[in-house]
Amino acid sequence: MPSVAMTVNGKAVSGEVETRTLLVHFLRENLRLTGTHVGCDTSQCGACVVHVNGKAVKSCTMLAVQAEGAQVTTVEGLTQDGKLHPVQAAFKEHHGLQCGFCTPGMIMTAVDMIRRIPDLDEKTIRAELEGNLCRCTGYQNIVKAIEAASKEMKGARA
């Protein structure tokens, strides 16, 4: 079996995988990082979104071997020194989840869009959430949480 090595949440990791092993399964099963979820397994729901080299991607639609040498961040990598990331805190504060299944992907997508787009309005947030499905909340509080986090993070940078 081929071996694969990458950096996940700042830590060098490696493992034996099949060539057909998806990145999401490497993260969940080899590394036991089960925060990243498999929802639809067809690139549509976004529960599996992680960052590869700083960009949000669907880890169910990428082979683990494609991530050789890459910098990967999962939802577990957002918390620093036991303190929630501003986006995680905003989801908690604004009740941006009910069952929580879509939440890791929502948060990783939110962090990515906040990084790319300095002035996020509601319309842009909804458009950017195109690839993330939530079956509980009707998106209202997810959008509110991302808007709040975006403002807070902008304030922190200023």
Partner: peptide, 9 residues
Amino acid sequence: IGDPAVRHM
């Protein structure tokens, strides 16, 4: 095309 994550790949 697709969604932001798909467009990244």
